[in-house]
Computed example of a mutant assay.
Amino acid sequence: MTEREESEPPAESAAPGSPPEPDASSTGSRVARFFGADRRTSAWRERTLVRARYLAVQLDRERLRQPEDPVRKALIAGMATLLAEAQAGARERCLASPGSGASLERASANLRAAELILLELVADEELGSWVAEVQECAESSLRKADPHRIALAAAIKKQNGQGGAIPDRRLLIGTLSSAYTELGKEYTRVRSLRNILIAATVVVFLGAAGLALFGWFAPQTLSLCFEPKDTTTTIVCPSIQRDATETVTVETLANRKDALLVEVAGAAGATLTVVASLPRIQGTSTPYMLPLAAALLKVPTGALSAFLGVLLIRGEFIPGLSNLDSSGQVLAWGVVFGASQHLVTRFVDTRAQETLTNTGKPTAGTSADKKE
């Protein structure tokens, strides 16, 4: 089967009653296909499509029950629309705003709403099979003092201890809806932090690039050269070192590559800290690559730290470090300052890991929650 056949199944092969596929002849679809955006390479997209197909099968089964009931007809029609929107969200690529998460939100929100309608449609004798799933969602997403969680726990306890009836359908729907709402908020926080890290990476990169360009076009103004006090006949720059003469001074020997070389050395030192932190990085089940965004921030930050650190040494700001003796020593200090950015970015790593760890867990509630 070709890739086109896999991504755009023919109409006659679709299961009866399944949600309609998005119009492949639309202008947006043609533009997305031109850029290769119709290729579903994300795991969350495939999971969404599989889940939507499964719910479509459940919807076909519900169509056979009480087909003349107008309320059920309205619910079935609404669920079919939601599944179609979820599939469309899983297939679309938001080229205008890739960091907004619009496609993911569209797919996940519609899919969860479809599951709530399915819970509304299932027969009374099937409600028992939903209790465990709803309870798991409530315990993983809702705080202990949440009214829905308390009411569901009480109903389950009564059912298990006294042989009572299965929890009310409205209670199950309300609890599952609240759990989905909290989970959506957690994903929004993860995406927001990811976007902040990406924006910070771009800003720091532009700052480092701007300094490198300034040093390229005005090397004498932004000189990183040294004149060791013990050997006054030698001038040391990141890219060259030469004996001092009447025409060769600290300012005139400055090369346009000096700032760039120091920043490259700093970026290399920062990259080493990224490699060293890999054993402590944990994977995530969220569709947002938060650990990668935190790691990428280190590289331009290391370049900027190296430049500023060498500049501080040249300005004799750091006690005990006034002049450097060789070009290699200048670049070595650039690597050291680049690696030292971890003293700042480690707080970002900690925050990112805490956010991922808390995703899917109840948020902090009242003091009564903490006592429990």
Rank of each mutant, 00 (worst) to 15 (best):
A254W: 02
N195V: 15
T221H: 08
F226Y: 13
G184E: 13
S223Y: 07
M289W: 11
P287K: 01
L278G: 12
L260K: 00
Q241V: 03
E251H: 05
V203C: 10
R194I: 13
V204G: 07
V190Q: 04
I198D: 07
T233H: 12
T233N: 13
R242M: 03
T273M: 11
T271P: 00
E263V: 14
I235H: 01
Q241W: 01
E182V: 15
T201H: 07
V264T: 06
M289G: 06
E186M: 10
T252Q: 03
G266A: 07
M289H: 11
G207C: 13
G283D: 05
L193A: 13
F217R: 08
V250R: 07
L211G: 09
V275W: 07
V264M: 04
A218W: 09
E251V: 06
P287W: 01
E182R: 10
T188Y: 09
A267G: 12
T284Q: 02
A276T: 05
T234H: 06
G207V: 09
G207K: 02
R194E: 14
A270N: 07
L290I: 02
Q220E: 15
I281V: 15
R256L: 06
I281F: 00
G283N: 04
T232A: 14
R242N: 01
N255Y: 04
A265D: 02
I196N: 12
L253V: 08
E251N: 06
A270R: 00
V264Q: 00
T188D: 14
F217T: 11
V203S: 10
V274E: 00
T284I: 00
S178G: 06
V190D: 06
T245W: 02
T232L: 11
E263W: 02
K257T: 15
W216V: 14
M289E: 12
P287V: 00
A265V: 07
L278H: 09
R242E: 07
L183E: 11
L211D: 09
T188M: 09
Y288T: 00
T245H: 01
Q282E: 12
V248C: 08
D230Q: 12
V190M: 05
G215A: 05
V203T: 15
T286L: 01
N195W: 09
R194D: 15
P287Y: 03
P287L: 01
E186V: 14
L222T: 15
T249P: 03
T181K: 10
V248D: 11
L272Y: 09
R256W: 08
A268N: 03
L211N: 08
I281A: 10
I198F: 11
T271W: 05
A208M: 07
S192Y: 09
I196H: 10
R242S: 04
E186H: 14
R189M: 03
G210L: 00
D258S: 06
V236I: 11
R194Y: 12
A208Q: 07
P287Q: 02
